[in-house]
Design a protein around this nucleic acid. Sequence first.
DNA 1: CCAGAGAGTGAGTGTACAGTCACTCTTATG
DNA 2: CATAAGAGTGACTGTACACTCACTCTCTGG
Lengths: 183, 183
Amino acid sequence: MSTLSTAELRMPVVAASAVREFARGGYHGTTIADVARDAQISPAYVFKLFPSKERLFVAALDDCFERILETLAAGADAAGSQEAEAVLDAMGGAYAELISDRTLLLLQVHAQSVAEIPEIGQALRAGLKRVTRFAKIRSGASDSAVQRFVAYGQLCHLIVTAGIDGVPDEWATILSHGIRHPR
Amino acid sequence: MSTLSTAELRMPVVAASAVREFARGGYHGTTIADVARDAQISPAYVFKLFPSKERLFVAALDDCFERILETLAAGADAAGSQEAEAVLDAMGGAYAELISDRTLLLLQVHAQSVAEIPEIGQALRAGLKRVTRFAKIRSGASDSAVQRFVAYGQLCHLIVTAGIDGVPDEWATILSHGIRHPR
DNA sequence: CCAGAGAGTGAGTGTACAGTCACTCTTATG
DNA sequence: CATAAGAGTGACTGTACACTCACTCTCTGG
């Protein structure tokens, strides 16, 4: 027994495929077959690894926040100064770099859109809790600075999802001015 | 000819139903039958009024931004002072009141989530353009103040969609502190 | 009173998709 | 070598949904 099961190795691979595919199509716009194709397994086997589409999405979202937390931590460690504002700023820069490929950003937006599904709402709150607490504790910034950090993160999400960054109009530059890296 | 057609009177009614139903279920999670039921007509007739589901969603989104603009204008007119910051603040308060029933807020989030569909992305940008320009011109505030206005609006969207407002934890109060009316 | 334009629908069609099940293939240990 | 546990799949099923079409009903103008 204990084949040093490939299933436990396969699960995170499938979760990573789910991140990519759900980021592309959103929850309702992505099929299990899409994820299976990306992971190069059969759709049937996806259901052996995850009991339902909801759970698969939750796994993807958890993975997404895990990567975000790692990135924030690395950014904070690499900050020039360890003063609160400088650390927050460094985390913001690291986040901007992370989401330059849009995948993790889009997944979060799609998650917001289906947060009424209880398990997904719960996973989203759990991720936001981790991010908020980490930003607060690691930087030592004030509550309002942390709130601002998250608010401008959300603005960044809007800019990317709505495709505002490429627009040459004045209104577009008002919204995206100073926002880093929105490709 | 020119029956002073009921169709032209029916269209905005159906669009209003579409706002409600799409806000509930999102683009992929809402069916034409849902909208038809709300508007008390047959699904087939929806397709006589709107050529496709995409176009119906766009009509709903346009209606949503129309109402938002009206609200911002009314808020600005009712501001105590006509100083830039005071006007922006009054618009924020009016917006907070408008979205206390969540419908228009949710529709915007769902629109973000399907903004890759070209017509929808375009309608979303058109709405944001109107909001941004109006906020800037009507208040006369600085670019960065307008940007902040939108950023905190997005934070408000996050708080509502993720259901953060009811959470008693500290991280939740950091995010939602001072945000008005996030019922 | 009749012709026709437009409002409105019932009954489909084709397709796509979540989830299931019975099955095979591989490996590894007794 | 036998057997069994787990990896993995092909072929379904039932349902739901975007969109179509042929049709009826109700006016209104001549």
